[in-house]
Amino acid sequence: MTFKLIINGKTLKGETTTEAVDAATAEKVLKQYANDNGIDGEWTYDDATKTFTVTE
């Protein structure tokens, strides 16, 4: 399955996707991606669209 991350950061905005077997696995990968890029904020997840959003 494809999961999307929408980034609403102070210095970085955009989106990325990852392939994962489930939402929990995708969340780990996407949170690591955000952490690697210095993004720390509030996370939400929409199961209907398989989209995570992080807002700083």
Score class of each variant (00 low, 15 high):
N35T: 09
V29Q: 14
A23V: 14
T49D: 07
D47Y: 11
V29W: 12
T18G: 03
V54H: 01
N35V: 14
K13W: 10
A34H: 01
K50P: 00
E15W: 11
I39Y: 05
Q32G: 08
T55D: 07
G9D: 03
D40M: 12
Y33V: 05
T11M: 09
E15V: 06
T2E: 13
A23T: 09
K28S: 11
V29I: 15
K10M: 10
K50D: 03
N37F: 12
L12W: 15
N35Y: 14
E19L: 15
T25N: 10
A48F: 12
D46R: 03
T2L: 13
A20L: 03
E42T: 15
G38N: 15
K50N: 12
F3R: 00
K4I: 09
T44S: 11
E15I: 04
I6C: 05
D40H: 13
M1K: 09
I6N: 05
I7F: 15
T2R: 10
A23L: 12
T25E: 14
F52Y: 06
E19F: 15
A34W: 03
I39S: 02
T25P: 02
N37V: 15
A20N: 04
A20H: 04
F3H: 02
G41N: 01
A34P: 01
F3Y: 13
A20E: 05
K13V: 12
T53C: 06
T53A: 05
D36N: 11
Y33Q: 03
K50M: 11
M1T: 13
D46H: 07
K50F: 11
T51C: 04
K10T: 12
T18S: 04
K50T: 05
L5F: 04
V54S: 02
A20Y: 03
E42K: 09
T17A: 07
K4V: 15
K28T: 13
N37W: 13
G14H: 10
D36T: 08
D22C: 04
K28N: 08
G38Q: 09
I39E: 02
K10D: 09
Q32F: 05
N8F: 12
A48D: 12
D47C: 06
L12P: 05
V54Q: 01
G41T: 02
E42A: 15
L30V: 04
T2C: 07
K13G: 07
A48E: 14
I6A: 04
K50I: 03
L12G: 13
D47Q: 12
Q32K: 13
I7Q: 03
N37S: 07
F3V: 02
A34Q: 02
G9T: 15
T16R: 10
N35A: 15
L12S: 10
F3M: 01
V54T: 03
L5K: 00
Y33I: 06
D22G: 04
T44E: 10
V29N: 07
T18F: 10
W43F: 05
G9S: 11
K13C: 06
T11F: 11
T25S: 14
N37P: 01
A26V: 02
